[in-house]
Amino acid sequence: MNHETPAVVADGLRKTYGRTHALDGFDLTVPAGSVCGLLGPNGAGKTTAVRALATLLRFDGGHARVAGYDVTRDPERVRAAIGLTGQYAAVDETLSGRQNLVLFGRLRHLPVRVARRRADELLDQFGLADAADRSAGTYSGGMRRRLDLAASLITRPRVLFLDEPTTGLDPRSRNGLWDAVRSLVAEGTTVLLTTQYLEEADQLADRISVVDAGRVVAEGTSAELKARSGADRIELVVRDAGHLPAAARVVERVAGAPVTLDREIRQLSAPVTDRITALADILRALRDAEVPVEDVVLRRPTLDEAFLHLTGHRAAGARERAEVAA
């Protein structure tokens, strides 16, 4: 595959389940050799998109090409070129970890001896050597997940699909997986991963596509998405809570935008357009008004905020955190 041909192209994919539009004109282009993150809330259509691209799902409309082959017309070539780790572990629970990997290797048409050797390497790499001969049904969730990942890497795939690959992994395994993905990418594999963790998308993905209600609503690098999703903010901490109303009046007047207050931590924040000028003006106005300021920061929006801005609702992870905070 030459490097001008994108590794994944989805063009107006549609899939309906009854009255649910799981995919509703889903467009995506992933350049060869890059990592694309699909970011979206529960039910956005990430899994449906991955399953459609990995030939597991017949879609109702649109076209898709993976590794240069048409998904509908040439599914066997696509399957030979891809690796898939789905959202739910797809291993044989009755067989041992080793038997699983040898089986999948043989079904990829490796000779028995090669399949065995590859299985051993992967068991080592994913820290499963000790449990290699136990049936996979006895594995913990994280171990099963790792076995599932190993199964998608038996032969180096040209395009690797990872659907929420790190859900249920402890931090060490997660870092291990990220390393594995990075080294695959260094060897030329294209990765399409879905995630609800903004941090993961931020860490791994060259470009992020934000998915909502079955379509891509925003696309770009994480910096671009952050920049596009609204203004920078100024955050001020005043010396005591009694000063908050006065400070709020001043900031609102100078910044010309509504102010958010947090009494607990004596903080107020407001969006600003011209960062440095706004900072200077606000601080001067506060000194004139004799409001003592303890701390001040200017910051770009987080990906969480970007998400909120782009989809009109919070990301699942952020929602949970907000609920915990409340």
């Binding site: 066997e76 999948f104 990829r108």
Partner: peptide, 17 residues
């Protein structure tokens, strides 16, 4: 009904196998 069928379907193996 097992998840492993998804794995089989995503491999370049014969559909009938």
């Amino acid at each position: 009904g097992r998840g492993v069928v998804d794995r089989f379907r995503s491999l370049p193996m014969a559909r009938s196998a």
